[in-house]
Design a protein around this nucleic acid. Structure first.
Lengths: 141, 141
DNA sequence: AGTCAACTGTTGCATACGCAAGCTTCTCTG
DNA sequence: CAGAGAAGCTTGCGTATGCAACAGTTGACT
């Protein structure tokens, strides 16, 4: 049964290393950029980000702190509910995503393409899609 | 493509939470117990553990420190090569593994059984096995 | 209106990990 | 056989993260 653990950590470690080395971003941060790019107004509530990237609320707070410091996102207020604050994608964040995303996809395809053919890839995708319903993976407008 | 990572990480977070809550062990620690239980003399070199559980050498040092503190493993010297030190499974460690492993396997099968039938499970295992092997054997880019 | 539970977000503390540097020991080469 | 370099391991430091506690806000129920 250990192959589950092994496959997960092997993939994420390899992809994360490349991402950090080439672009200075973690996978969670890229995921946030992608989610925001596809969201209306390029903005999401922090609590929703928390669910979608599977981080605790405090983890999201700190990740967005980092991303604000580098100018990738901004904070936005909510007029209807003073509790919530939005994460809003900046122009710089959008540019960064468009710079990073092709490399990231290429890395994934290189890793998986070395051992899987197209049919197996589709099988795998179909199986895993049932585990966690995820957004499609193209940056939004 | 992000669903590959997302699905795995959703599963492993769930499994890890159960493991920590019910038995006070991380998945890496369980993996170490399992590897040692299958190894000759119930012992392995730290460097080999490092590769098998995909942790850095320093990560292994600290994990084994924790496991020694709770009596699950012991340190062993190597007479032929004074550089290497072994991690050796104790009786307590063996007992712990026998206590933990059935629960862990049951949790995995429960989580996956909710979504897959037996045939799909075998497909998935086969595919994931190759992910782990492939990345592990990479010469380094 | 008043109260209280639920929700959103942040902060203090603890933890697990990686990387770079260092130490010791081994091995290989000239 | 001496020195260089590799191998195994540990340590110092930085970082990403979770949990628990907290504060502010909202809404629901009395």
């Amino acid at each position: 049964m250990g192959q589950l653990i092994g496959a997960h950590s092997a993939l994420t470690q390899e992809l994360s290393a490349q991402l950090v080395e080439q672009h200075g971003l973690t996978m969670s941060e890229v995921e946030v950029l992608l989610l925001l790019s596809r969201a209306p107004e390029h903005s999401m509530r922090r609590i929703d980000l928390s669910r979608d990237v599977r981080l605790s609320p405090s983890g999201v707070t700190r990740m967005l702190d980092r991303m604000e410091a580098t100018g990738l996102v901004e904070k936005g207020a909510c007029k209807q509910d003073a509790r919530v604050s939005y994460a809003v994608l900046t122009e710089a964040g959008m540019s960064k995503l468009q710079e990073v995303w092709p490399d990231h996809v290429a890395a994934i395809e290189r890793l998986l393409g070395e051992r899987f053919d197209a049919r197996e890839l589709n099988e795998l995708k179909e199986l895993l899609n049932r585990v966690a319903d995820q957004v499609e993976c193209e940056p939004g407008s």
